[in-house]
Computed example of a mutant assay.
Amino acid sequence: MQLELILEQPGISISYDHDLQWQYVNWQGVHDSASSRQGCLLMLEAMRLRPAAKILNDNSNITYTSVYLTEWSLNWLREMHTAGLRYLAWVYAPVFPERQATEAIVQYLSNPTVASFDDVANAYNWLLRQHVSPGV
């Protein structure tokens, strides 16, 4: 696995996996709405620097989050789709109070397609199976 670090700030690092041709986003520590928005904006910047149709969004190293999906989040996802994102594998944080509400929304997202997981292995395997049409 050859990862190229694209962007990094406290609590998040974003790398590009050359072998798999997707971004790997590793969130760490505690996150609230403000730090999550900042991280999401960093993800959008990374998409513009190193476009990828797939992202493995790993929240398994988050120790606590109070984040929930909002209209801002949905607009951000639309911007990510415009920037080229087609598939987002979202590994939930171990402690995620808003999980049930989030899953109720995530299942209806299609541009990009978002799938949620409890572990990196299942997210990785799902992302591998997603086909991206050339030129998309």
Rank of each mutant, 00 (worst) to 15 (best):
G135Q: 11
C40E: 07
S110K: 13
A104F: 02
K54S: 06
S133L: 14
Q21H: 15
A46T: 00
E4G: 00
W22M: 05
L77E: 10
H81Y: 14
L7K: 11
L109C: 03
V136L: 15
Y92H: 14
L128C: 07
M47T: 04
A101C: 13
V67M: 07
S36G: 08
P134S: 14
S13T: 14
T65Q: 08
A123V: 01
S60G: 09
T82R: 12
A83W: 00
N122E: 15
L3E: 05
Y24A: 01
R48K: 13
Q100I: 12
I105Q: 12
R50K: 14
A123Y: 02
G29Y: 08
A104D: 04
D118H: 08
W22F: 02
S15W: 04
S33W: 07
V106Q: 08
W27D: 06
N59F: 06
L41R: 09
Q107P: 00
L88C: 10
L49K: 15
Q28L: 10
L41F: 03
V91S: 07
L56Y: 09
A121H: 09
S36F: 09
F117L: 04
E4C: 00
M47I: 04
D58T: 03
Y87D: 06
T65C: 06
Y68M: 02
G135A: 09
S66C: 06
R48N: 12
Q23G: 11
A93Q: 09
C40W: 05
S13R: 15
H81L: 02
I55P: 04
A34G: 03
L85W: 01
S13V: 07
R86H: 15
L56R: 03
V30T: 15
R99Q: 13
R99H: 07
S110R: 13
R129H: 12
T102P: 07
L56C: 08
I105D: 07
G135W: 12
G39D: 07
V91E: 11
F117A: 02
S33T: 11
A52K: 01
S36E: 06
R86Q: 15
W27T: 03
S36T: 13
L49D: 01
V114L: 10
W72C: 09
I62T: 01
L128S: 00
A123G: 10
